[in-house]
């Protein structure tokens, strides 16, 4: 994962987590079921971990460009 990919992964996770919190709480409250809160939160968190933890190709679009190696001095 390149530097931009790390930034993107962290951002996606930081948006997904509060969303998981609010959505699972609302789902449980509307259904009057506390177990649903935990199931929904676990499901959304598992999906967000699956999206953010592995080094998917979308996180490797900007690899570091290294400076080309200077020509060797053996010809001098």
């Amino acid at each position: 994962m390149d530097l931009r990919g790390q930034y993107l992964a962290e951002r996606v996770f930081m948006i997904a987590q509060p969303l998981a919190l609010v959505l699972s709480y609302m789902a449980g409250y509307l259904a009057s079921d506390t177990r649903l809160v935990l199931i929904a939160y676990a499901a959304i968190s598992a999906i967000s971990l699956l999206v953010c933890v592995p080094s998917w190709p979308m996180y490797r679009r900007h690899p570091l460009q290294f400076v080309p190696q200077p020509p060797s001095s053996e010809h001098e």
Binding site: M1, Q6, A9, E10, F13, Q17, P18, A20, L21, S24, Y25, G28, T34, V37, L38, Y41, S45, S48, L49, C52, V53, P54, S55
Partner: peptide, 27 residues
């Protein structure tokens, strides 16, 4: 965040802390 293990460590601990907050909100 440079390796899979570092991301897993940071994000899973964040999930657990948020989960605890969720239970406090329910209580």
């Amino acid at each position: 965040m440079h390796s899979v293990m570092a991301r897993m460590n940071q994000m899973s601990s964040s999930v657990l802390v948020m989960g605890a907050l969720l239970l406090v909100a329910v209580a």
